[in-house]
Nucleic acid binder design. Structure first.
Lengths: 124, 124
DNA sequence: TAAGTGTAATAGCTCGGATAGTACAGCTAA
DNA sequence: TTAGCTGTACTATCCGAGCTATTACACTTA
């Protein structure tokens, strides 16, 4: 239940971190279709963040069809295709990769970079 | 001379865009050791940005040893090792890649992504 | 009924980023 | 020497995104 870990100091806004974290949990299978999301107030309390911020994150998630919210009931994971959900995360990656490529960095260097990083994450 | 193109609407701050653009130009060989950077006021006027913002970018570049500034003379490209300069750009890429990996996206997908992107950029 | 849910609305704070303006000192070419 | 360029420093101000604080309402369920 210690799901959502947020970095308050990060440059990426909290509501966006929640968004990404949700997507991540879905990809990893820790959140499945129709699973109930933590309630706005509960998550708000858990990570010490204003309820409005949670609401904003949930609104975004619902807008993208990743969750659905029922007034008085709660918020739940929608039926989603994993590929499309992953795209929301990959959009960030694409942007960074494109930046690097346009800066004149060769694709092979980037690939090397990924391999190195993936090994490290496996160890950890 | 239409070097620095800046996206005023971007989420990344202008001074950071200037920083990256400078690194990019160095990597591409369009800026070489001892080449003179556009003057603070000139660049300020060219891209319609406050001089202070340019100064901030140049200060960062100098702090990282990428350029050197001589009061009354101008700012010039320092002697730098391309690898180290590229690292400043790759730091962004690493962060994005690591995010994706930690979210459970497989390395092979990321590699595919890079290949796709690099083909597109070659066409363009 | 009570306690939980999402949702809405308003007001305010904070901080990074950017602007505006002025000033000073160093360099260089006319 | 002088005029015009350079970097640099400083202060004051504005702006907007992000977040907080608070209250309120309608819905659902035990």
């Amino acid at each position: 239940m210690v799901f959502f870990e947020i970095d308050l100091k990060s440059r990426t806004p909290i509501y966006e971190q929640i968004y990404k974290k949700t997507v991540e949990l879905i990809i990893k299978g820790e959140l499945k279709e129709n699973d109930q999301m933590p309630s706005v107030r509960a998550l708000s309390a858990e990570i010490s963040v204003n309820p409005n911020t949670i609401t904003k994150a949930y609104a975004l998630l619902e807008k993208d069809g990743i969750i659905y919210s029922l007034s008085g009931r709660g918020s739940f994971v929608a039926k989603v295709e994993l590929e499309k959900v992953a795209d929301f995360l990959l959009a960030d990656f694409d942007r960074c990769a494109l930046d690097a490529l346009e800066s004149g960095i060769s694709p092979s260097i980037l690939v090397d970079r990924i391999n190195t990083l993936s090994k490290k994450t496996d160890i950890t």
